[in-house]
C-alpha cells in the first residue's frame, strides 16, 4: 500500500509513524509538510501524534487549519483511508472529520501507560482482523473523549465506536478508563468507517522488543480490507 505521513510544526511522533509505515509495514511512504497541498496519491493518510503547535490554544486546533488539511478533508470526502493517532485524532475532531472533542484527562495530568483495547465492531476496515484484547501505549494530556448525547447514540447505532478501554481481561471498568472518556471510548470511526481516530499509539506497539506488537493488527486489518474488501 501507499501511505502518506503528514508533518505539522511541532509533531513529535512523525518519525515513529514513518518508521512504522516504511520499516514495519513496508508501505511505500511519502512525507508531506503542513504547508503543502499535494498528498502524493496515497491509499492511506497517517496523521501522527505529538504536540503540533505545542498543543497551544487547543490540541490539534492550529494544525487542523493548515493548507494540507484541506487536501486531507477532500481525500476523506472521496472515501480515502485516514488514521489519526493521539494528536492526529485531536486534529480529526478539530477539522470535523470526526465528531466530538478530546478534553483534558480527568486526572488533569499527562498519562503515559499501557492500556487495553477491545474492538467494539469487527466489521470496520481497521478492526475486522482483531480477535483479541490489544495492549497498546497511551501518552497524552487531553484524551478524554466527549460528544453530545445524540452524537454518542448515533456513533453506537451506526457501529462507529472502534475501540473501548477495558481491563486486561476485557471488561469495561472505570479503573481502566484512565482519561475519563465518555463510555470508555478510545477510538471512533467516520460515517463511511474509513477515517479512524484513536488516542492509543499503535505505532508504538509494533515490535516485540518494545513490549507489544498488537498495534500492527489494526493496519493488517486495513490491508486485508483494502485487498479483499
Amino acid at each position: 500500500m501507499r501511505a502518506t505521513v503528514v508533518e505539522f510544526l511541532g509533531s513529535n511522533c512523525d518519525h515513529d509513524m514513518i518508521y512504522f509505515s516504511k520499516e514495519v509495514l513496508k508501505f511505500k511512504t511519502e512525507v508531506v509538510w503542513y504547508s503543502e497541498r499535494d498528498l502524493k496519491n496515497p491509499d492511506v493518510v497517517f496523521l501522527p501524534g505529538g504536540f503540533s503547535y505545542g498543543d497551544y490554544l487547543r490540541p490539534g486546533a492550529m494544525a487542523s487549519r493548515t493548507p494540507i488539511m484541506e487536501s486531507v478533508i477532500d481525500f476523506a470526502k472521496k472515501g480515502g483511508f485516514i488514521l489519526g493517532v493521539c494528536n492526529g485524532f485531536q486534529i480529526l475532531c478539530e477539522s470535523e472529520l470526526l465528531p466530538g472533542a478530546l478534553l483534558r484527562n480527568k486526572s488533569l495530568t499527562f498519562i503515559c501507560d499501557y492500556v487495553y483495547l477491545k474492538a467494539e465492531n469487527c466489521d470496520s476496515p481497521y478492526t475486522k482482523k482483531i480477535n483479541k484484547i490489544l495492549k497498546i501505549p497511551i501518552a497524552h494530556g487531553d484524551g478524554n473523549y466527549f460528544c453530545k448525547k445524540e452524537t454518542l447514540k448515533e456513533l453506537k447505532d451506526e457501529g462507529r465506536i472502534a475501540f473501548k478501554y477495558v481491563s486486561p481481561e476485557g471488561n469495561i471498568d472505570e479503573k481502566w478508563n484512565f482519561n475519563g472518556s465518555l463510555e470508555s471510548t478510545a477510538g471512533i470511526l467516520s460515517k463511511n468507517k474509513r477515517v479512524l481516530g484513536m488516542m492509543p499509539h499503535p505505532e508504538r506497539a509494533c515490535e516485540k522488543i518494545l513490549g507489544s506488537d498488537d498495534g500492527k493488527l489494526i493496519i493488517e486489518s486495513l490491508i486485508s480490507f483494502a485487498e479483499n474488501g
Binding site: A61, P99, G100, A101, F146, C147
Partner: peptide, 9 residues
C-alpha cells in the same frame, strides 16, 4: 469561530 473556540465544546 475560525480558530479560538471549538464550538463542539
Amino acid at each position: 469561530k475560525k480558530l479560538l473556540a471549538n464550538e463542539v465544546i
